[in-house]
Amino acid sequence: MKRYSWLIPTLYILFLMLPIYWLVSMSFKTTNEILGSFTLFPTEFTLDNYRKIFTDPVWYNGYRNSLIYVSINTVLSVAVALPAAYAFSRYRFLGDKHLFFWLLTNRMAPAAVFALPFFQLYSAIGLFDTYLAVALAHTLFNIPLAVWILEGFMSGVPKQLDETAYIDGYSFPSFFIKIFIPTIAAGIGVAAFFCFMFSWVELLLAKTLTAVHAKPIAATMTRTASSSGYELGLLAAAGTLTIVPGAIVIYFVRNYIAKGFALGRV
């Protein structure tokens, strides 16, 4: 039985790749070919769909906008989660457990519930249609997650490390930055990965909070899908391109995923 165990992951990966293959192959087809006949490979191979995306500012700005707010969100979430996670892993203080659970409850909040109030809130403070609005809104579910992950990693680091550093004459900030952060680098990698992921894939809030200037690529796609009829090839090309940043991020954190997950509690 052990000998054939490789079959299971192989079949699973095949199942994962089939729809992605179909998307990529469709992105190289002409609309005529897509609607006309069923072909497994593109017969009239074309790059027109990609050319359109790279030359039309509505399309490529969508990508830029998404990447900007996702980056702001990731940096912000991890930066504020670091000291909080340290506090949860090292100290006991009034209401700590309740606070931790309350943070997690925000991870459970359905985006659909918050869409309308978020729109009103961010309009009221004049941030509507800015990168910052989406980045801040996404901290609602990313900060709790980052705190949760980092707390797990930090609890795995023995307290003796802190104590030794103080005896060696480190002040708290210099200990935290020079010793502690490098020690939990894997945890920061995993937390940043998850923040990037959940901000990159979220659409409902990002779409609600933007109109023109900060419109995410995903919103451009849905609007195109409804407004210009049935341009499946173009939609497939845009979809293919949204997979690329994710694939790059996974490639960079691949070793952290393998080892990093196990270190912490995630």
């Binding site: 992605i20 894939v201 949204t242 994710g246 995923i257």
Partner: peptide
């Protein structure tokens, strides 16, 4: 395996 399996997780939900 890990890289390929993680792919669907990073695709925007509407995609």
């Amino acid at each position: 395996c890990l890289v390929l399996m993680a792919m669907p997780l990073l695709i925007p939900w509407n995609v």
